[in-house]
């Protein structure tokens, strides 16, 4: 607890003393208006008058105390009492890339996927989150950021686009280049490139610790076209960069037990990166992804210590208010 304008206090003391001296001088001059009376004991010896004088003195004392308290508390409030605290903001060193398949086969599930993403984003705290969507080519909707308000705003826009609200038609622009559709391997690889490259991690600070990286990939793995990289190759790339891929499949249909089935391919790709595979309608999906991502924390990064100065005017201002009210009551009682 400190005072920002501490020099106001001596100034207030000097001003109060000057006013007091002036008032005292005026008071001694003011006695000229009082008229002399003899045999004052006619009045002063009356018990009724003595009681009135005692009451008067009591209210006078209360008024004096309230006045002094009002002066002190308002001077203290004017001197701006501040609380200086040092905080070290803690940052979680996890990056999560949300990777959304925007192909035609997913169009019925995209809104639900974005809803799941929004729920994921609400549960994370301190992590950086980015969003990329892909069809035949991938575009980054927003890069890795910890501005969650912005994240929610962008996810809201994505939801509007997938719900087909008017004015949001441009959201998917640039995801289709005619080389096919649902090029999942290419999309995953593009998402992997959204992470900062290892040699320039965290803006090139060489001492910054490595952040854990995860991709939440929502796709039905229904490929149509010739991708540059297959899903398996992309998964291999992810494993090589120690990125975990968590797959969310909105169309977890039973295509059979074969290893070539889309769901099974996706599962094996996710698990090859030490990630996990969930059906979108699985109630454990969100919680599982969150807990799995949180387990990957290597070390919390302590931010640089910051001094936070906050005003604490409540106590002196409340005291000044109470003193003012008491002073008003006392003055009313004194009929001044």
């Amino acid at each position: 607890m400190g005072l920002m304008f501490w020099w106001l206090l001596p100034l207030a003391v000097v001003a109060a003393a000057a006013v007091g001296v002036a008032a005292f001088r005026a008071g001694t001059r003011g006695s000229a208006r009082r008229r002399p009376a003899a045999h004052a004991d006619r009045l002063t010896l009356l018990p009724e008058y003595q009681a009135a004088v005692r009451r008067y003195r009591r209210w006078l004392a209360i008024a004096g105390l309230a006045c002094a308290s009002l002066l002190v508390s308002s001077a203290v409030a004017a001197a701006r009492p501040v609380d200086v605290t040092t905080i070290r903001p803690e940052q979680h060193n996890r990056d999560i890339m949300l990777c959304l398949d925007a192909s035609g086969s997913m169009s019925s599930a995209d809104a639900a996927v974005v809803e799941a993403y929004a729920e994921l984003a609400r549960k994370f705290d301190g992590e950086r989150i980015g969003l990329a969507i892909f069809d035949s080519t991938a575009i980054q909707v927003f890069p890795l950021t910890d501005d969650y308000d912005y994240v929610q705003e962008q996810l809201q826009q994505a939801r509007d686009a997938f719900d087909g609200k008017p004015g949001s038609s441009g959201f998917l622009d640039g995801t289709w280049s005619g080389r096919g559709s649902s090029l999942i391997g290419d999309g995953l690889a593009s998402c992997l490139n959204s992470f900062p490259s290892p040699d320039t991690a965290d803006g090139g600070a060489p001492s910054a610790p490595q952040r854990s990286r995860s991709v939440v990939l929502a796709t039905d793995n229904l490929l149509s076209g010739e991708p540059i990289m297959t899903l398996a190759e992309a998964a291999q790339l992810a494993a090589g960069r120690s990125v975990r891929v968590y797959a969310l499949n909105p169309a977890d249909l039973d295509y059979g037990a074969g290893a070539g089935q889309p769901g099974a391919q996706l599962r094996s790709a996710a698990e090859s990166t030490s990630g996990a595979y969930y059906a979108l309608d699985n109630p454990d999906a969100i919680a599982g992804i969150v807990s799995a991502v949180e387990e990957t924390e290597t070390a919390a990064i302590k931010g640089a210590p910051r001094a936070v100065v906050s005003d604490e005017p409540a106590v002196p201002l409340a005291a000044a208010l109470v003193s003012g009210l008491v002073l008003c009551t006392a003055l009313w009682r004194l009929r001044i």
Partner: peptide, 23 residues
């Protein structure tokens, strides 16, 4: 109402104190 002071001991006698009905 004028305030008085006592000539004997210069005690101030506020007029409004002497104005209550009981006094």
């Amino acid at each position: 109402v004028a305030d008085f002071y006592s000539v004997a001991d210069y005690v101030f006698l506020p007029a409004h104190l002497a104005q209550s009905d009981t006094v």
